[in-house]
Design a binder for these strands. Structure first.
Lengths: 211, 211
DNA sequence: AGGCTAGTGACACCCGGTGCCAGGGGGCAA
DNA sequence: TTGCCCCCTGGCACCGGGTGTCACTAGCCT
């Protein structure tokens, strides 16, 4: 299937009939699902944007209007995720230690409903195992780091570009990512537990390694 | 200057005459220098591989034989860097605490000679500020993380895929990167000092943030 | 009806990256 | 010297991600 190709179907803008009251699946959501399925099935690099677009019943050009890059189709609405983290941080108890607040916010923002977990697993498996997606992740993490560094700076009377705020942002985020990896590796573990365990190690300075 | 273009010079394989005893600059080194200069001057994305190749007096095709990707031209011989870190870790005193050994190895592997610092600065400024290079960096860091995680696992009787080894690898590396950022931001600071300061904060669990 | 806007598809183009083949030069043996 | 081999190189066509532009259509408002 080459670059210029006749669409073979008259663009089904909505898939089937939505239950009354439930909004019909948006085009964006449909593309996300098609992308995730294809990428999981055959690998991120092995699937072309042409194929994803085709599977979702839109043109390649339209795909790139919904998602700036091929990788973005995997990330869902990550901006909203970051915004929620920012809100959680803004609403923390000022009497609680800074570092503890950051960790708690991370745990809470990643407290997904049970029904969302399979999707999250699929997403994260792709992101952490596909080199192209792993690379892209750094750009997304940078958004998170900025938010956390700003919070730490505000609370500790520093500026977001000082060493400690940056350091807290970078290391807590690294810990969260590692917790995700551990969660993916162990089918039966709870994401929240992995996060708490990772943060405990981090904030205590890895007590088991003093030898 | 389009894709197919007549080379306008008869490939100067060596730049001028090398001082006796000193090996002539290799083609690879010449390409690296050309790439770094052009990227610094006009931005990574704004320079095409065609232009870099042209500036180095080789063809585009040959450029991609020296470097797998455009980004790799910025990273010098990073593999050797990782190998050296691995050797340093292998040669650590078994009586010293694990975490301390990792940090010390990081400091030592980044102990550059004064003459190398300007080049290092240029490289790191690009890597940390150009989105495409920042993304690529994650792939390189993964190599480092594997080495560190394996070391920590060996020393602490765990496996490299356990939480703590991964966690130490991820957080020390995040700290090192943050120290690099701080070093770049402050013209007059020493890289080693920034690294030590970052590791001190990390290993003590950010003592200033208990509030 | 007429006009505005938002979403879409087609198409051409740019650029990073790759497979393939055709030289070309240097070393080595006869 | 001649012939052979091998490595480095350049040219070229191709793939695929990403973008600018234009034309078309469906609504929607007046």
């Amino acid at each position: 299937m080459g670059r210029g190709w006749a669409r073979h179907n008259a663009a089904v803008t909505v898939t089937g009939t939505a239950p009354p009251g439930v909004p019909a699946e948006t085009t964006r959501a449909r593309v996300e699902r098609a992308a995730l399925d294809l990428f999981t099935l055959r690998g991120f690099e092995q699937v072309t944007t042409d194929e994803v677009a085709d599977a979702a019943g839109i043109s390649r050009r339209t795909f790139f209007r919904y998602f700036a890059t091929k990788a973005d189709a995997v990330w869902g609405d990550f901006g909203a995720h970051v915004a929620r983290l920012e809100e959680l941080l803004a609403g923390t108890d000022p009497g609680r230690p800074v570092l503890e607040s950051v960790c708690a916010a991370y745990v809470e923002v990643n407290d997904y409903a049970g029904t969302e977990l399979p999707l999250l697993r699929e997403r994260m498996l792709l992101i952490l195992n596909e080199p192209a997606l792993l690379a892209h992740s750094q750009l997304r993490y940078a958004e998170v780091d900025r938010v956390v560094a700003r919070y730490v700076a505000d609370r500790s009377g520093a500026t977001p570009s000082d060493l400690v705020p940056r350091l807290v942002a970078a290391t807590t985020r690294a810990s969260a990512t590692t917790a995700f990896e551990a969660w993916l590796a162990d089918e039966h573990s709870a994401l929240g537990d992995q996060l708490r365990q990772a943060f405990t190690e981090l904030t205590r300075g890895f007590p088991g390694l003093v030898h």
